[in-house]
């Protein structure tokens, strides 16, 4: 597989913007899935979601921004992943986000592309393994951050759960995980701090179907310094089978200086209590 190809042209509409005026993370994932499927199709593979989508965020896209995604076959032995998708702000050409994917069956690399700048930084390469969260739920280290139902429009034409639909459960549950450790929005925003996801990994496991009732088990798995790691495991509510795992690294930001800062000690203590 040779030269990079443009796999998506996109635009940020007003109705996909978050409370903080940024494009919601779910829609970056939707775009990367579109690009990934187009790339697979070009290689003669089915247009299906990749097993793992590992994304880093560099610059926020805001309302009305146009962007393109260019996709590259990369050296699997070197990076642990099979393809790289670069989302570029169409005006500046700068990379807003980059997503690595794991997909079997892509043709071999013909033209080398250096993916080093987009390599995972805080999360390990490859699919995450499901955990039995029973113990963590019992002792309060984890919580059920979301319960709900999967709807038909959460699925693609072949009945596979869409990446952005999976991420939307993180949007539903994120605040509940913070509340679980008694950290309120005011604990951040009240002292001029914010949070931004800088790295995100989606691993797919069991099959889901429309109408399935689900729960999401969430916990903090790494914190201290300037970032916090969160894990969200989506499960079939009836059987407990794991459908997907999303891990994120969230950076603590000084909103005025627009710089990353250390997580305040009192918040570390609250996270430690969980």
């Amino acid at each position: 597989m040779s030269a990079p190809m443009t796999t998506l042209h996109g635009f940020v509409p007003a109705w996909e913007i978050d409370a903080n005026d940024h494009w919601n993370t779910a829609f970056y994932l939707r775009s990367f899935q579109y690009a990934s499927e187009r790339f697979a199709e070009e290689a003669g593979l089915p247009a299906s979601p990749p097993q793992v989508l590992h994304t880093r965020f560099f610059r926020e896209l805001r309302h009305q921004k146009t962007f393109t995604v260019e996709s590259h076959r990369i050296d699997t032995a070197q990076s642990g992943y099979d393809a790289l998708h670069l989302m570029r702000d169409q005006t500046t050409g700068k990379v807003a986000a980059a997503s690595l994917e794991m997909r079997a069956g892509l043709p071999p690399v013909i033209e080398e592309f250096d993916a080093t700048n987009y390599a995972p930084r805080s999360l390990p390469v490859g699919p995450d393994t499901p955990v039995d969260a029973t113990e963590m739920l019992r002792d309060g280290r984890a919580t059920v951050s979301h319960a709900g139902v999967l709807r038909p429009d959460d699925f693609d034409a072949e009945g596979r759960l869409l990446s952005h639909a999976i991420h939307m459960r993180v949007s539903e549950g994120n605040s509940h995980l913070w509340h679980h450790v008694d950290v309120t929005p005011d604990d951040f925003y009240g002292r001029g701090l914010g949070r931004a996801i800088v790295e995100h990994k989606l691993s797919r496991h069991g099959a889901a179907k429309p109408g399935m009732a689900i729960r999401q088990v969430s916990y903090f798995d790494n914190f201290g310094g300037k970032s916090v790691g969160l894990t969200h495991q989506v499960e079939d509510l009836t059987t407990g089978a794991v459908l997907s795992i999303i891990r994120t690294t969230t950076l603590v930001l000084d909103l005025k200086a627009r710089k990353s800062v250390a997580l305040p000690d009192d918040l570390i203590q609250r996270l430690n209590r969980a």
């Binding site: 059920v144 951050s145 979301h146 319960a147 709900g148 549950g173 509940h176 729960r215 509510l237 407990g240």
Partner: peptide, 16 residues
């Protein structure tokens, strides 16, 4: 059992 619960209720939905 797979849902959060209080003494007199289960948490049947949570979102934002």
């Amino acid at each position: 059992d797979r849902l959060k619960r209080t003494e007199s209720a289960v948490v049947s939905y949570s979102g934002a």
